[in-house]
C-alpha cells in the first residue's frame, strides 16, 4: 500500500478511537456517536459507488435499492423466519449480488445518461416493490421489532458497540478497496474509464469488469443495509427511495469521486449537515445541498478531498 494511504488510514483510525471518548464526555455532542454510525453505514455504500463512478466511470442512480435489498432481506429473514442475523446478512449479500448481476449485464452496455436512467428506473421499481408487496415487506408502514446483532453471545445493545462494529467493517472494506484500486483490476477499471477502445485493445474484458465492480458496489450497499436494519430495528420504504440514491451520488461527488477518500469525506460532511447542522434551514435544506453541489462542481470538480494536498502544501510552507 502507498505510504500516503497508510498515513491516512492511521489518521482515520486514531480519529475513530478518539471520537467516542470525546463525544461521550461532552454532553452537547453526545448524540454525535449515533450520527457517526449512520456516517459509517453510508460510507460503506459510497466506497462502492466511488469504485463504480470515480474509478470505472459508470454511474448508478439506483444504489438505494441495493441498500434496501440488503436491509429488507435481513429484516424479513430475522423477523419472519427467525434466521440468525449474520446468516441473513450473508443471504442479503447473495440476493443483492444476484439482482445486481441480472440488472448490471444489460444496463452496463449503456453509457452516460442512458445508464443513469436505467439504474434510476431499477431503483424506482425496487422501491415500488417494497411499498406494494405488503405481506412480505409490510407495505408503506414497514415493520419493526427487528432483533439487534450479537457477536459470540455478546449482544450489541449500545451505540458504542454498533459504532465499533460499523467502523471496523468500514476500515476492512476500505483496505480491501484500496488493495483492489492498486492492482491490475483497479488499473483495468481506470483504463476503461479513460479509453474503452484502448482498454479493449489491451485485452481488458471491459464489460466483465464493469459488471464485476457494479456487483461489488451492490454487495457493499447490501452489507450497509443489513447493519442499518439491525441498528435501527425498523424498516420502511421511505428510507430507500430515489432521493437517497441521489444523495449518495452527491456525497461521492462533493467529496471527490476520483478518490475513495473523497467518498468518505463527502459522506461524513453531508450526513452531519443533513442530520445536525442544516436544521436551521428546515425544509430549505435541499437548497443548501444544491448550492454546495453547484459550488463543488463549478470550483472544485475533483471534490473537497482535492483541497487536502493543497492545504498540506500551504501548511508545510507556512
Amino acid at each position: 500500500m502507498q505510504s500516503s494511504n497508510r498515513k491516512a488510514l492511521l489518521g482515520l483510525t486514531l480519529f475513530l478511537i478518539l471520537f467516542p471518548v470525546v463525544a461521550m464526555n461532552v454532553s452537547a455532542i453526545g448524540h454525535y456517536l449515533d450520527i457517526m454510525i449512520f456516517v459509517g453505514i453510508y460510507c460503506l455504500i459510497n466506497m462502492g459507488l466511488s469504485l463504480l463512478m470515480g474509478y470505472a466511470g459508470q454511474i448508478s442512480l439506483g444504489h438505494a435499492a441495493f441498500f434496501g435489498l440488503g436491509a429488507y432481506t435481513s429484516g424479513i429473514l430475522c423477523t419472519k423466519f427467525s434466521m440468525s442475523p449474520w446468516l441473513a446478512m450473508v443471504a442479503g449479500v447473495g440476493i443483492t449480488a444476484l439482482v445486481a448481476y441480472i440488472v448490471g449485464v444489460p444496463s452496463l452496455k449503456l453509457k452516460g445518461h442512458y445508464l443513469a436512467m436505467a439504474t434510476l428506473g431499477f431503483g424506482v421499481i425496487v422501491h415500488i416493490f417494497f411499498n406494494e408487496e405488503v405481506s412480505l415487506t409490510g407495505g408503506p408502514s414497514g415493520f419493526s421489532d427487528i432483533p439487534g446483532l450479537s457477536i459470540l453471545g455478546f449482544s450489541l445493545n449500545s451505540d458504542l458497540s454498533y459504532y465499533i462494529l460499523v467502523w471496523f467493517l468500514v476500515l476492512l472494506t476500505l483496505i480491501f478497496s484500496l488493495n483492489v484500486i492498486h492492482s491490475r483490476i483497479g488499473r483495468a477499471l481506470r483504463s476503461l474509464h479513460d479509453s474503452e477502445l484502448a482498454a479493449d485493445a489491451m485485452g481488458v474484458e471491459t464489460s466483465r469488469y464493469k459488471v464485476m465492480i457494479f456487483v461489488l458496489s451492490a454487495v457493499y450497499a447490501s452489507v450497509a443495509g443489513s447493519l442499518y436494519t439491525h441498528y435501527v430495528g425498523f424498516l420502511s420504504p421511505s428510507s430507500f427511495d430515489f432521493f437517497l440514491s441521489i444523495k449518495l451520488v452527491m456525497m461521492v461527488v462533493v467529496g471527490g469521486m476520483h478518490n475513495i477518500w473523497g467518498a468518505l469525506l463527502g459522506t461524513w460532511l453531508l450526513t452531519f449537515l443533513g442530520n445536525e447542522w442544516l436544521h436551521v434551514f428546515h425544509d430549505f435544506d435541499i437548497l443548501v445541498y444544491g448550492a454546495i453541489l453547484l459550488a463543488v462542481v463549478m470550483f472544485l470538480p475533483d471534490g473537497l478531498v482535492h483541497l487536502v494536498p493543497r492545504m498540506s502544501r500551504v501548511w508545510k510552507r507556512g
Binding site: R184, R187, A188, R190, S191, A198, A199, M202
Partner: peptide, 19 residues
C-alpha cells in the same frame, strides 16, 4: 492517441500486462 490520460505513464504500460 488513446493513452489512459489520468493514469501515470508506468500504469499505462502496466495495463498492457493485463493479459
Amino acid at each position: 492517441v488513446e493513452v489512459f490520460g489520468r493514469m501515470t505513464v508506468l500504469e499505462n504500460v502496466m495495463v498492457g500486462r493485463h493479459i
